[in-house]
Amino acid sequence: MFEARLAQGALLKKVVEAIKDLIEDANFDCNSSGFSLQAMDSSHVSLVALSLRADGFEHYRCDRNVSMGMKLASLSKILKCANGDDAITMKSEDNGDTITFMFESPEQERLSEFDLKLMDIDSEHLGIPDNEYDATVKLPAAEFQRIVKDLSTIGDTVEISVTKDAVKFGTTGDIGNANIMCRQNKAADKPDESTEIDINEAVSLTFALRYLNSFAKATPLSTHAVLKLSKELPILVEYHIPEVGRLAFYLAPKIED
């Protein structure tokens, strides 16, 4: 059987809220090392990769590898019934056709159980190598969210250019154009506001803002978003979930013909 208890149930709520508009349904894969998901959006332009480590759970048991297909909209409906401070336990019998979500209030005076029907989902799994990237930018998650939101009011795509000490986001639209530059800033007294750039080679790539805006829904999960870019490769946008794992998004670039 599979059974996993997350004391900070809010994490699971935030993860599902961050991905439910991007992917319709997905297989959640459970094995002894943890709980993970990989899924592409319906147009196969972006990919979501979630991994929650077994040791990030208060209790974790997975007797054999299972893949549980769920519709994200249904999962979201159920998780909205959990309070933000509830602990959430997921349970499923081997070969079961449902997964049970149990919500416990902090004083355990309220216990609720919701069963979600599992589905068979055909999904394509991509092998993504653990590349070294040309440039890595770590910036406050709220700042990244604001940049992609603001630029979306002007254009549909963003050119992200990283140099040694700054990252520039630029867009062009019918009404004009916009550029936002963030300089490296390693303020030791305010680590949550730091912007750090690690670069092997200057890089500049163009992406659809619609998807980056969707990725930014993961902002509540982490203080920082980490952008990893390499020439002619998909961008990786990572949100580290402290002590539990990470939620990562990949987006294929726009290529000039």
Binding site: S46, E124, H125, G127, I128, A252, P253, K254, I255
Partner: peptide, 14 residues
């Protein structure tokens, strides 16, 4: 803004 390519142009299915 260029041509949008898919993820499968970069990574192979496993």
């Amino acid at each position: 803004g260029g041509r949008q390519v898919g993820m499968t142009a970069f990574y192979a299915a496993t």
